[in-house]
Amino acid sequence: MVGIVGWGAYVPCYRIKAETIARQWGGDPESVRKGLLLEEKTVPGMDEDTITISVAAARDAIERAGIAPHEIGAVYIGSESHPYAVKPSGTVLIDALGIGPHVHVADYEFACKAGTEAMFVAYSLVKAGQMKYALGIGADTSQGAPGDALEYTASAGGAAFIMGDDKVVAEIQATYSYTSDTPDFWRKELEHYPQHAGRFTGEPAYFRHVLAAARGILEQSGHQPQDFAYAVFHMPNGKFPLKAAKTLGFTREQMEEGLLVTTMGNTYSGSSPTGLAAILDVARPGDLILLVSFGSGAGSDAFVFQTTDHLPALQDKAPKIRTLLERNRRYLDYGQYAKFRRKIIFNSPV
């Protein structure tokens, strides 16, 4: 049996309310709240980035798994906001957690689905018998352009999953991917903020790929929507995953536990992975979980997990993601937010 043996998730303590951003740009707070189903989003501290978020999440994953860091044979961080354009994120993480140096490391990038890519490859390597444990992480500190719709949602956070074949807490029963060349959202080298194709990001991009991947894995695994205790779909906002769920025949109840977006925002590569972490925090043995990610450009990775008897003992070994979302929330005004996210021009050296 191969699957998750440990998980951890992290979100920064800083927040900005959707209302604060709306007022800055003369928008209507109420329509943003209803349109995106979003109250607020996380903001990384000035001392946080994809690497520090990954370290925090992975430290808890190792703690839950109860393994020695050097037993991990591969580390993959999926992100669209790696702090360096050239120089890996994973190298910092393996040295921070004592995993290296005898380890395979790579950074992945595929818009918002880089995290599930990392999980997929980590899982595949363990399944192939290449190594005992592999670590897959999805984390981001993404930015939307000032005044752009994305600014309401682009947030910071991540989740880490250790794959293994011993004391598995959530077996991976099936995987499925669906990918096509669909330019719905992109950022070129040296551009600071991403561009997106407006409403084209919906039907031809998000929904086409998420629904196809979900339908594909359901057919492949022989499960029906009602078989699942939980489902989590990539959460660019509150509306899209609920609409996808409804279209596929999943209930609001199945979605509720993993739906962190309303108070977390879109953590991009960390989005559906943090949702999965929230589900693992509370699931009972034998629960079926469906996860479908989405990355612009575009593609979806889908996973079917079934939890095991090993799960409950690990749930309280590290902070739960909903606890992290609720405690020590520190609200920023737009000026502070602009400073934190370096949206204003500073003099050197920083």
Binding site: G45, T52, P83, R327, S348, P349
Partner: peptide, 25 residues
């Protein structure tokens, strides 16, 4: 102690990481 960015000597230089404390909550 948690793992955080500490400083960059200038915008083009390496990011220097290290430990910071946070209150146990």
């Amino acid at each position: 102690l948690v793992f955080r960015r500490i400083k960059e000597d200038n915008a083009a230089d390496i990011i220097q990481y290290g430990y910071k404390a946070v209150l146990r909550r």
